[in-house]
């Protein structure tokens, strides 16, 4: 039972990170029908920006808890903003000029952008792992004083922070999409871009906003990844990106709640698989479940059937 709980906690934490990245995939797909392969690398850039800011500001574990928290929130906000600029630039420079071009063009440039971002970071930061000392340590254990040989469940402050922030961001983002004029414009472009422009919506701007918000959420995931694992390199965007993309497809690509649910499920599958079987095949497990789900539900768990799209 304790062991099960532990995997659950780990899985939800991991799922939060995947879910935050998956939102960017699903929103971009929803609005321009394109898989933004560079999105995983935007997540990676976000984690490097967070690391750079932490080192620049000299944020250290020795600081008092209150100051540390404020500093980390500041770093989070700043790296969201800076990463958003990257997301904006990728769309503006690499995707927008090709809009209306032949169908494979955006796919090819997206792969190109992915490689370009990886190589850029590799050259600018070096190929070696970048470690970061654990900034937030400690947490709860149940039971607090385990009998010899008894398994004790660890719930770290870091995990609590990740899950709480993620839930808050997802609730906020869902409200933004469902309740505000900006969200309505976003959905209008998703359903009928031409009609949206006939109602005075600046479609290009709305697409930019989609990339910007997706990148900002990926930046949050990037910073969590950095703080949680304590080490990053220029290649983390590939694996995390593929998994978050899998999450988006599992949940139903184009669906916002689908991305969140898919992220959570992929995180749980990965945690339970490595907890109960072997961490060697954890990625295969996630993909197998994706394949099985897609056989029975081709548009994913919460996606809408293709037919309605016509």
């Amino acid at each position: 039972m304790e062991y099960f709980l532990q995997q659950l906690i780990n899985g939800i934490t991991l799922g939060s990170i995947y879910g935050l990245i998956a939102i960017g995939y699903t929103m971009v797909y929803g609005i321009i029908g394109m898989i933004n392969f560079a999105h995983g690398d935007i997540f990676m850039v976000g984690s490097f920006i967070a690391l750079a800011l932490i080192l620049m500001l000299g944020v250290a574990a020795s600081a008092p808890m209150a100051i540390l928290l404020v500093a980390l929130l500041g770093v989070l906000a700043l790296s969201m903003a800076l990463t958003a600029v990257w997301g904006w630039a990728v769309e503006r420079l690499a995707y927008r000029p090709l809009r209306g071009s032949f169908r494979l063009a955006p796919l090819i440039t997206a792969i190109g952008m992915s490689l370009a971002l990886q190589n850029f970071v590799q050259i600018a930061q070096g190929a070696r792992n970048k470690p970061l000392e654990p900034l937030i340590s400690g947490g709860f254990s149940f039971p607090a004083n385990p009998a010899p040989g008894q398994f004790s469940v660890q719930l770290s402050y870091m995990q609590i922070g990740i899950v709480v922030t993620t839930v808050a961001l997802m609730v906020g983002f869902s409200l933004l999409i469902s309740r505000t004029a900006l969200g309505r414009a976003q959905r209008a472009c998703e359903q009928d871009r031409k009609m949206a422009s006939l109602l005075g919506v600046d479609v290009d701007k709305t697409i930019s906003v989609t990339f910007v918000t997706g990148a900002a959420l990926a930046a949050v995931a990037g910073m969590f990844f950095l703080l949680y694992y304590g080490v990053i390199d220029f290649f983390i965007g590939f694996v995390a990106g593929v998994k978050a993309f899998t999450a988006a497809v599992l949940g139903g690509i184009g669906s916002l709640p689908g991305a969140m649910l898919g992220g959570l499920l992929i995180g749980l599958i990965e945690a339970f698989w490595s907890g109960y079987f072997s961490s060697d095949y954890k990625d295969v497990a996630a993909f197998s479940i994706l394949v099985i789900v897609l056989i029975f539900m081709p548009s994913g768990l919460l996606g809408r059937p293709e037919i309605e799209k016509v």
């Binding site: 359903q191 009609m195 809408r304």
Partner: peptide, 10 residues
Amino acid sequence: PEGRRIFPRM
């Protein structure tokens, strides 16, 4: 416009 183009999921 022609075909009305109502946003179907709004």
